[in-house]
């Protein structure tokens, strides 16, 4: 598989604190890469760099042959073709489900926008819920709205930051299955970060393990996850 996204020697610091130390990774088209690691190891920062919400101190990010970041270039988040599902989802509370999903489609004509919204809501099984507000939905439904809102933009890469962290264990298993189905159906390339090994096993084509701002290992889920969980092993 040729690489869709390439991260090369990314360094990132917040003030005096070094967050990422020379992270290099790649993502193939239609691949789901799960980054696993303990809290504070730099997983979320890595996603924010790919999204363009932060600028790396050095290193290169390339998406489909276009340099998004290097020492001279920084393409703004809204111009990257990268979608993101945030931890806590960040749904717009004053907008309906349909308005949330259609937020990024403002440049389209009304008819086309409506068509895209309906199509997207259908694909995530939220047909008929377009007029509801986020607080009127269950946790799993909110999750699907957040994914639909990103996917409707047809991003080249979808980033997911601890997408199941707010769900109870039963709902988590259900939603995880649904999200995987949606990503596969759309043929979406995605990077998901989690600290939950079970999420990683179920979602990943490949898993990268991260600790202290560096990638410790990367490979097939079954290979990487054979390593003992450093947090449980202590």
């Amino acid at each position: 598989m040729s690489n869709l996204l390439e991260l090369d020697q990314l360094h990132f610091a917040l003030g005096d604190r070094t967050i990422l130390r020379g992270v290099s990774l790649h993502l193939a088209a239609r691949e789901i890469l799960v980054i696993i690691g303990p809290s504070g190891c730099g997983k979320t920062s890595l996603l924010r760099l790919v999204a363009g919400l932060e600028r790396p101190a050095s290193g290169t990010i390339t998406l489909a042959g276009t340099v998004l970041n290097n020492e001279r270039t920084h393409i703004a988040p809204e111009r990257r073709s990268v979608g993101m599902v945030f931890q806590g989802l960040a749904l717009f509370p004053h907008l309906t489900v349909a308005q949330n999903v259609g937020f990024g489609l403002h440049a389209l004509k009304q008819d086309e926008r409506q068509h895209r919204i309906s199509e997207e809501l259908r694909s995530v099984d939220l047909e008929g819920l377009g007029d509801r507000y986020p607080h009127q939905l269950s946790g799993g439904q909110q999750q699907r709205v957040a994914i639909a809102r990103s996917l409707v933009m047809r991003p080249q890469v979808l980033l997911m930051d601890e997408p199941f962290s707010d769900l109870d264990s039963d709902t988590r298993v259900l939603v995880r299955g649904e999200v995987l189905r949606i990503l596969r159906a759309h043929g979406t390339s995605a990077i998901m970060v989690t600290h939950d090994r079970e999420d990683a096993v179920h979602m990943a084509d490949r898993v990268a393990e991260m600790r202290d701002g560096a990638i410790m290992g990367c490979g097939k889920a079954e290979d990487v996850l054979q390593f003992p969980d450093p947090e449980k092993g202590k």
Partner: peptide, 8 residues
Amino acid sequence: DAARLLGA
């Protein structure tokens, strides 16, 4: 951030 990533 969500709004920015949706092109705003």
